[in-house]
Write a protein that binds this DNA or RNA. Structure first.
Lengths: 262, 262
DNA sequence: GGCGTCCACTTGTCTAGATATCTAAAGGAG
DNA sequence: CTCCTTTAGATATCTAGACAAGTGGACGCC
């Protein structure tokens, strides 16, 4: 096995009290940060680093696992460890639910993605009546049974978002809202047709590490958090008419809000 | 060493092709989820799990590292591995910069935290003139030199947020904004006194894993992402007068926005 | 009582292997 | 030329053990 190009990575400092696996992770992180390895590029193999630093393979692997946890690299079985490319981000503007965006027949997601030149998909469509979770029930002021609309959004084949809309049964049952395709303008347009004039939305935003379920559904790489957004839509009477629970791959989104300085 | 209480954790399935360390992590995750271990409680020690499952210690440690990456548990050297308690969250409302909140002498952070019964602190105060990063310069329409106000916020001794405000030098130099304590109502009140009537804010929100620097500054446990918020304040002429770059411990915050359904 | 030492238990770090599985390219059979 | 096998090299999993270092209680000395 040929040695690494000299100067690409430094040496260990045996006098340092910083753990060896951290020193190696530091050097790799620094090299990536300086652009010595570019996006998508393969890092030296475990065997090469074992050779270069004179440590055991488990120690090198430990270093890699640190960088994976930071979301900097990802390993591919049988191929190597690569600098994780930063995917294109989808920008969600705070006016994305404005009435003027509700004209077209297609959903906001499809229109917007097409405009950005990517190939959008929606799958895992599931619509059913179920018992509200305590949290959702509380937002509806105690309503127990709701209609749930679940769907997953993909961009160019990559899952980026998983969303569930909840609506009180007395509003949604037997309406187009309970159909797989609710029609032009989506469920917000239907709600307004049904006499529920939308007045405002509340959005709550959290960020956390994904559950194993979410890792599977969104095919998340390790070291990628999720953004958890819960939106509640209120009508003019102040009644909550929809709660939408959305989990997004954090590396695929930037949320953008415009606030008046009243 | 006494064995674990029977039934607390299951057994391994040797026929499964799921890796042993994953099976162990699954069982611990499930036990935590079911409340068999409550917040802050100590999990069985590595030695006990080695005994219980009949595996090597490194395998048990691997399982723990998975759970750490998920933010479920944290290890304390010499003591044990504990279920990570969920800290109280600070709720940031979208109207937190409304003029009506700008009356008091104390900063919004101090007032709000006092009201919530916690002990707030601000430290690492640093104010200096510097060269704008390309990103900040772009938001200011090309301005090169800015005043930077850096500070760290703590609740009950725990760092929760690190923020830097940037202001164009021609606005801030020689004003109270360049002083450690800008006075009642903070720098937004001073900006308005200086004739920069605030019109609106733009906020951009991202979530990601922290850099090692941020882990240190915010004393983050492993498996805790950060929320990165960049706010730009615009005056009535549409000029950007401040850019505030904030990094928050994601487990300490819920952001809340209210949007009109126009 | 107060203080320090010792010890058992804990997690942290590192080694040196063994075996499994996946990938991609090379080489051979047809 | 096509298809299959082989093979080298890569990561994935797991073991058994060594030593380091932090924690907290027991114990004995003063």
């Amino acid at each position: 096995m040929s040695p690494l190009p000299s100067g690409l990575l430094g040496e260990l400092d045996p006098t340092s009290d910083r753990a060896v696996f951290r020193q190696i992770a530091d050097q790799l992180r620094e090299a990536i940060g300086r652009g010595r390895f570019s996006e998508g590029e393969k890092l030296p193999s475990e065997a090469e680093l074992v050779e270069h630093y004179g440590v055991s393979r488990m120690t090198v692997r430990h270093s890699f696992s640190i960088l994976q946890g930071e979301g900097l690299v990802h390993a591919e079985h049988g191929k190597g460890v690569f600098v994780r490319p930063r995917p294109p981000v989808r920008r969600l503007a705070s006016d994305r639910f404005a009435r003027r965006h509700r004209k077209q027949g297609k959903s906001a997601f499809l229109v917007e993605a097409d405009a950005a030149g990517s190939h959008p998909q929606v799958d895992s469509l599931e619509i059913k009546e179920e018992k509200a979770t305590p949290d959702v029930a509380a937002r509806f002021g105690g309503v127990r049974r709701v209609l749930a609309r679940r769907r997953r959004y993909l961009l160019d084949g990559r899952p980026v978002e998983f969303a569930t809309s909840y609506l009180p049964l007395d509003i949604a049952r037997g309406t187009p809202i309970a159909q797989p395709n609710p029609g032009p303008g989506g469920i917000y347009a239907r709600l307004e047709e049904l006499g529920h004039h939308l007045h405002h939305f509340d959005e709550e935003i959290r960020a956390r590490m994904p559950s194993p379920d979410e890792v599977r559904t969104l095919r998340l790489a390790s070291g990628v958090p999720v953004i958890h957004l819960i939106r509640t839509a209120y009508d003019s009477q102040g009644r909550a008419v929809e709660v939408c629970d959305t989990v997004m791959a954090a590396d695929a989104y930037v949320l953008s809000y415009q606030l008046p300085a009243t």
